[in-house]
């Protein structure tokens, strides 16, 4: 039998309390953060390009200096090799010391060096 006054009303409605920001807000937040990140990434890429340019130019400015020093050493070695060749081949008739094997006046660096 029902109690006096009838049964309690059946609670059939969903009980979902609001928790945290809504989906749209989260999506907007994620988009904003990502956009900022990509912006920084782009700026960083531009900056890195400039840093690279700076590095390349600092090396370019040093090239003549280093090449000049290397050239003096190469010239010294060439002259020493020529003197050695002259000394070794002095008894051979018609030997031209230091003559190129190519019929061309273009400079070629030595393909082999003597370590003494």
């Amino acid at each position: 039998m029902p109690p006096p006054g009838g049964f309690e009303a059946i609670r059939y409605k969903r009980n979902l309390p609001l928790r945290g920001p809504g989906g749209v807000a989260i999506l907007a937040g994620v988009t904003a953060i990502s956009a900022f990140g990509f912006y920084r990434l782009g700026q960083g890429n531009l900056e890195q390009r400039e840093l690279q340019r700076e590095k390349v130019w600092s090396r370019l400015h040093l090239v003549p200096l280093l090449v000049a020093e290397g050239d003096r050493d190469a010239y010294r070695r060439d002259q020493a090799a020529l003197a050695r060749e002259k000394e070794i081949m002095k008894d051979v008739k018609d030997w031209e010391a230091g003559k190129s094997v190519y019929n061309n006046s273009r400079y070629r660096s030595r393909s082999a060096i003597a370590v003494i």
Partner: peptide, 16 residues
């Protein structure tokens, strides 16, 4: 002009 080390010794000394 010329890649020969002998060719540019004078200019090289100035650079150094």
């Amino acid at each position: 002009e010329n890649k020969d080390p002998e060719h540019c010794l004078k200019e090289g000394r100035r650079v150094t």
